[in-house]
Design a binder for these strands. Structure first.
Lengths: 130, 130
DNA sequence: CTTAAAATTAGGAACCATTCCTAATTTCGG
DNA sequence: CCGAAATTAGGAATGGTTCCTAATTTTAAG
């Protein structure tokens, strides 16, 4: 099972130890502490491989660079479109019913990977300097 | 009310006429037909202004450049993380209950703007050349 | 109208995040 | 071991987007 390169292992370790939705750059900085010679392209390449393998999840941001999440436990995300803050939360979406609706409406039997809430957080509502 | 520049009007018109989730580049190409001298920076700047004003919505993609949607009617999106296809659909998410859960779990009274499903579409499941 | 201030523009440079390229190194299977 | 396959470091290249500037357009007031 452990047939990853040590660089890829180090990246996955960083993700497990930092459940804070880091950007690729932040992952790179953290991995540097374990593997000081690692290159940024290796980090990007392995992040993509880990996403492809389903080990980590890419979070699609409205602002700023993409972020990544280690899936220690199933959860959803609520993302503030103004400040980019990501909140983990649990909600029992009725995926079966949503799947059925999708099939009915779009004629496509999708596999649902995740459900994300986009909105405006409390701070951004009150700090509304516009 | 019509105190938009003609360039901004043209962009909004293009969005109303093309409910196909275009990228910024595609919007630029379409607007060129109406305003042949428009520059790409004007398109980007006005897209951002229209998003800020809530006239159009930015869709956060797992792959490829961001896409935009004119909100002719409230709907949700199901996005394929592999091919980037976007499907419009209607589902009566219980936003009040979700809001309450968010407040309880993350202690933040967010305004929910949209709920997006990320998954793998039927085609990408069967065309799985991996 | 005239005019000054404010907003917007075109065009291109700059920027940032990410991917691609290459030659060298490491890992894997037999 | 040994050859093939995978991975790496490092840097160049790319793509998408934002920023800068001087010129133009729009707006509001007189």
């Amino acid at each position: 099972m452990n047939n990853y390169s040590k660089q890829r292992e180090a990246i996955l370790d960083v993700m497990k130890e930092n459940l804070v939705h880091p950007t690729a750059e932040e992952i790179y900085q953290l991995v540097l502490e374990k593997e000081p010679q690692i290159s940024k392209s290796t980090v990007y390449r392995n992040i993509n491989i880990l996403v492809e393998l389903g080990e980590i999840k890419k979070l699609n941001m409205t602002i700023g660079p993409d972020r990544y999440d280690y899936l220690y436990k199933e959860h959803s995300h609520a993302i503030c479109e103004k400040c980019g803050n990501i909140f983990d939360f649990y909600y029992n979406f009725n995926k079966d019913e949503i799947s059925k609706e999708l099939l009915k409406q779009i004629g496509n039997n999708m596999d649902i990977n995740s459900i994300t809430i986009y909105g405006i957080c409390e701070d951004c509502k009150s700090n509304n300097k516009k």
